Simulated scan of single mutants.
Amino acid sequence: MSGTANRIQAEGVIKNIIREIVQECASRGEGVSETLVAFIVKAVVLEPQNDFQVDRVLASDDVKRLIDLCVRRLLDNKSSSLDTIKMQVYFDMNYTTRDEFLTEHRRVLETRLQPILREITDNRAASKDELESLYRKIVSSVLLRSGLGSPTDISVVREATAALQSVFPQTELGNFLSLSKRDKDRQLVELTQIVTGIRLFNK
C-alpha cells in the first residue's frame, strides 16, 4: 500500500475513533465536540507512556485502548490538563472565522484528494480489471470528498458504491474516459454531490 493510501486509511480510522469517543461520552452523559476529542486523541497518541506506534495503522486492540484512554480522560472532571485543552480548543474555534476555517478545510481536503484524483483523471483503463479498479477509485474519491464515512469501512464502501451505480453505472466508464481532464474533474464533483445526497436521503 502506498504512503498516500496508508495516510488516507489512517485518517479514516482516526475519524471513526473520534466519532466513537463522542458517542461513548454522550452515552455517559457528557457532551463533547469532535474538535475537543481530536485534541485529546492526538495528546494520548503522542504520550510516550501510552506506547502507540504513530508510524503505522493502529491494530484493533490499540484502537480499543485508545478509545478507552480518551474517554476516561474526557470524563475526568478534576483534570487540569483537560481544562487547558478545552481552553485551547475554544480559542482555536473562536478566533478563526468560519470562512477561514472552511477555506482551510477545503484546501486541505483538495490537497489530500489530489493523488487519487490524478490517478482517476490520468487513467487509461482498458481491461475489465483496470476498469473495476478505476471504478473503486472513483468510489473512494467520492467518499473522501464527501467526508461521510471511511473508504476503509466495507459497509460504507458498499453503500457509496450502490448509490454511485444508480447514477453512474460502471458501463459509463468508457464515456468518462473520453472526457477531457477538466470535464472529468467536473463530473467527479457532480457525482460526489449526487451520491452524498442519495446517501443522506437514505439515512
Rank of each mutant, 00 (worst) to 15 (best):
E159G: 05
F176V: 01
G174R: 14
G174F: 06
P169G: 07
L177H: 04
S150N: 03
V157N: 01
A162I: 12
V156M: 10
G174P: 07
E159S: 13
T161G: 07
R182H: 06
R182P: 01
A162N: 15
G174Q: 15
D153N: 15
S150Q: 05
S150F: 12
D153I: 11
L173H: 08
E172S: 13
P169N: 10
T171V: 05
S150G: 02
R158K: 14
E159N: 14
T171D: 10
K184M: 05
P169R: 07
R158L: 10
D153V: 08
I154R: 15
S166R: 09
A163K: 00
L177G: 03
N175A: 10
P169F: 08
Q165C: 13
R158W: 10
A160P: 07
K181F: 03
T161S: 10
T161D: 06
V167I: 11
F168I: 01
V167D: 12
T161K: 13
R182G: 01
D153C: 02
F176K: 08
T152F: 13
D153T: 11
P169D: 09
L173R: 06
E172G: 03
V167F: 08
N175L: 07
E159P: 00
I154F: 15
P151R: 08
S178V: 03
S150E: 03
L164H: 13
P151W: 09
S178Y: 06
K181Y: 03
L173P: 00
T161E: 10
A162K: 12
T171L: 02
E159V: 01
D153W: 11
